[in-house]
Amino acid sequence: MAALGIVERAYRGALEKQFFDGLYLAAELNRQLGGLEILLRGPAVGCAARTGAAGSLRFGDRVVRTLSDPPQGVRRLLADGIPVWVEEPDLVVLGLADDGVLWDGVRRVAAGALAARWAEFRMVFYL
């Protein structure tokens, strides 16, 4: 029985977290919990956009190229076979509803529709 992780607040420390953000944790939980599905809602639907990273940052003579990259995080989840859902109304609000804007394989769902499936999951949590 898989678990369901809901992400509504992403972007919580690009410099502190770097590779270990909520989506990296999702990949690990998928391995350890015997399966995971991810629902993105609110501004977190932007993580599913097919875009490049915002870029490296320079601090003094040090260039940090390893900041968190949420779209790559979602891409990796999809490559791992993890279902990634996004709530359709949030895509519209963020301007990301057009075809081709999201990574292939991201699944669209009506707001709240996934809750009808909560009984299918061993646990539901926010990530």
Binding site: Q18, F19, F20, F59, G60, D61, R62, T66
Partner: peptide, 27 residues
């Protein structure tokens, strides 16, 4: 450095302390 990334063992991920040190070194 941050703890190692098992998914990318050879990449260095600087700690916040290292980033602050870089600023103090440069300025």
């Amino acid at each position: 450095s941050k703890p190692r990334n098992p998914g990318d063992w050879s990449t260095d991920y600087p700690s916040t302390a290292a980033v602050v040190e870089a600023l103090l070194d440069a300025y």
